[in-house]
Structure formats: C-alpha cells, structure tokens
C-alpha cells in the first residue's frame, strides 16, 4: 500500500504539490486534473522517481528514500511518461529493455517483447527505430515496455491514451483491465474512469480537491457534461 503524508514538492521556490495526503489501496486509481495541475509530478513522487521536498511517500509503512530499499522497490513499480521516450535501437530492443534489466536473457526478453507487440498489433514495426514510427505508435511502444513486465506491484500511467486512436485506446483499456497490477492513471480524459472503474483523486493547482468513489464521480461528471 502506498501512502502520502503531507507531501510537498517545490520547483525552485514554486510549490508544485502542496501538502497532499492520500492512501492508494484500490486496483485502479485516477488522478484527474487540468493542465499544469501537478498530476505528472504527483505520479513521479508516488512512483519514486523524484523525492518529495517535504513530507513522506510510504510503501507499506516504510519510506524507501530513507530505508535503503529504493532500488529494490523500483523493480516492482513502473512509470510510463506522457510523452513517449524511446531509446536508440529497434522497437523490440526498447520493449525488451526492462526485462533485460531484470536479468532475463536477451533472446527470451526479445521473444516476450515480440509477443506483447503482437498483442497490440505492432508486429510490423518491431524492427523499426524511433524516427520511423508515429507518435501514436511510440506511445503504444512505451506502454508495451511496461506491459511486458508481469512482476509489478504498481503501474503509473501518465495520460496513457492521449495520442491513441479509438481502436488502440480500446486495446489499451482492455489490457489495463486484465492486468493484475495496481494501476494509478493520470488523465485529463474525463470519460476514462467510466470505462475502466476506479477511485478518483481530483487535483487542482497542486492540491488534492477530492478523493471520491466512481459513483460520486459519475454524478459530478454527468452534471459537468449536461
């Protein structure tokens, strides 16, 4: 279980996250907010990419930044950036990398990478390089690079469907639904929680403005739309 206790994050002197306290225990948790509301920073804090300036991020009651378990814990979580970042090499090389980092032999890693790419209909680009694929394909590859891991406790997805067409959006949502890993999803896509149920955290200007159930969200969402 992840718990945030009065977490603050400053960029220079400006506070980006302002004293957020919350507990993540649901299978799917959404972080919803407008542009520059602090969603990405909050996800990076939760996924142990950046340390809080003040406050604590606790994994099962322990602060990994102090307990010395940071690197070990990072192997059980993964974060997908909003803007896909692909490395040198082919699409297969990119998707196989997290497996290789976990000590899986290169051939086996490449085979598993090809399997997941096939599942997302990307077999035709598996040998292409980052400059030769579209931004939507890059986002799918970036997602596959995390979806290929089956030993994760948490996946943090930052706007996972922002560049995808309807068909690929459906594929990703279906895959996330089937994946037995706890998911934390930052999104501006207000319809996403209705398709893939979960708890909703509403964030605005770095502050947590709501921690609500799907039912409450549905009511608010419908009143917002109509």
């Amino acid at each position: 279980m992840i718990r945030l206790e009065d977490v603050w994050y400053f960029h220079g002197k400006s506070p980006i996250i302002k004293g957020i306290s919350l507990t993540l225990s649901d299978s799917v948790t959404y972080v919803i907010g407008q542009n520059a509301s602090g969603k990405t920073t909050l996800l990076k804090l939760m996924s142990l990419i950046i340390p809080p300036t003040k406050g604590e991020v606790l994994y099962n009651g322990e602060n990994p930044w102090r307990s010395g378990k940071l690197l070990k814990l990072r192997k059980s979580i993964a974060y997908v950036h909003e803007k896909p970042i692909l490395l040198r090499g082919t699409v297969v090389d990119n998707v196989a990398l997290p497996l290789i980092l976990r000590g899986i032999p290169k051939n086996e890693a490449a085979e598993r990478a090809r399997d997941i790419l096939r599942e997302f209909g990307l077999e035709n680009i598996e040998n292409k390089r980052r400059k030769d694929i579209s931004s939507g394909q890059a986002q799918l590859v970036s997602l596959c690079r995390v979806f290929v891991l089956d030993d994760l406790e948490y996946i943090f997805l930052d706007e996972p469907t922002s560049m995808l067409d309807i068909e690929n959006r459906r594929r990703v949502i279906d895959f996330i639904r089937r994946k037995h890993t706890k998911k934390v999803i930052a999104t501006r896509d207000l319809a996403l929680p209705l398709q893939l149920p979960g708890r909703v955290m509403l964030i605005d200007a770095g502050e947590l403005r709501g921690n609500i159930t799907l039912e409450e969200y549905r009511t608010r969402f419908l009143s917002y739309i109509y």
Binding site: I49, L71, K75, A78, I85, R88, L97, P98, L149
Partner: peptide, 24 residues
C-alpha cells in the same frame, strides 16, 4: 529528465541509468 528518468522508471540502477544516458 528524459532518458535517465525513463530508465530509472523501468527498474535500472543508477550506474546502468548513467551508462544508458551516456549512450543516448
């Protein structure tokens, strides 16, 4: 903010992340 953070976010240790960042 890009390569290093990415590699850390998929489970690399600092040394591996530095090496991959150097390669990139």
């Amino acid at each position: 903010n890009t390569y290093w953070e990415l590699v850390i976010s998929i489970g690399a240790d600092y040394r591996t992340a530095d090496l991959i960042m150097l390669r990139e």
